[in-house]
């Protein structure tokens, strides 16, 4: 299944380069939506650190809501499915693709359509939010490095939106 030749992606594999920012498609990732009332029980069930505060991330795990986490690991990773436990582990590896924006002007490109004050995102902070009309999960991975998860069918629109905004940088 990891044979790359059999995969298709909704956006170009080649990065789009602009002065001050590059926009590229992340390699395939394993993704899970994790739900539970009790972060400790979830941590125990799947054997991963579970950040307790909305917006925090640790070890590929981002807390999106009071009972919701997004876990992103390299392709091929597995987690226990928690059968019978009061929690929910759902494989969403291919629901979204991850776009990576890197460079000093990445924040400007994202601000072209995201209404949040991105200067307030500390490194490691992430959030579900919106770019114009399209839902995204935005994580500040580094001072000048951001990841954007977007559902697959919205990815071409977002790719066009971000690369167009980048082309307008002056």
């Amino acid at each position: 299944m990891s044979d790359l030749a059999t995969r298709t992606a909704p956006v170009p594999a080649e990065p789009a380069e602009f002065p001050g920012v590059s926009i590229s498609l992340s390699p395939p990732l394993a993704r899970w939506s994790l739900r539970a009332r009790d972060p400790a029980a979830l941590a125990k069930a799947i054997g991963h650190m579970v950040p307790g505060k909305i917006g925090e991330s640790a070890g590929g795990m981002l807390c999106l809501g009071p009972d919701e986490w997004l876990l992103r690991l390299p392709e091929g990773a597995t987690v226990p499915m928690g059968e019978g436990l009061p929690l929910s582990v759902v494989d969403i590896s291919e629901r979204a693709v991850t776009l990576v924006l890197e460079g000093p002007r990445a924040i400007e490109v994202l601000s072209s359509g995201c209404p949040r004050d991105l200067s307030k995102f500390a490194v490691g902070y992430g959030s579900r939010t919106i770019y114009e009309t399209v839902e995204i999960v935005l994580v500040r991975k580094g001072e000048e490095r951001w990841s954007v998860d977007v559902w697959r069918s919205f990815a071409p629109w977002l790719w066009t939106g971000l690369t167009t905004a980048a082309s307008h940088l002056r």
């Binding site: 298709t8 072209s112 359509g113 697959r152 069918s153 629109w157 066009t160 939106g161 905004a165």
Partner: peptide
């Protein structure tokens, strides 16, 4: 603003659309 031509609104396509 952006919402013009190709960016007017998303056209969702399946993996099999091409």
């Amino acid at each position: 603003g952006h919402a013009k031509d190709a960016l007017f609104q998303p056209t969702r396509k399946t993996p099999i659309d091409p």
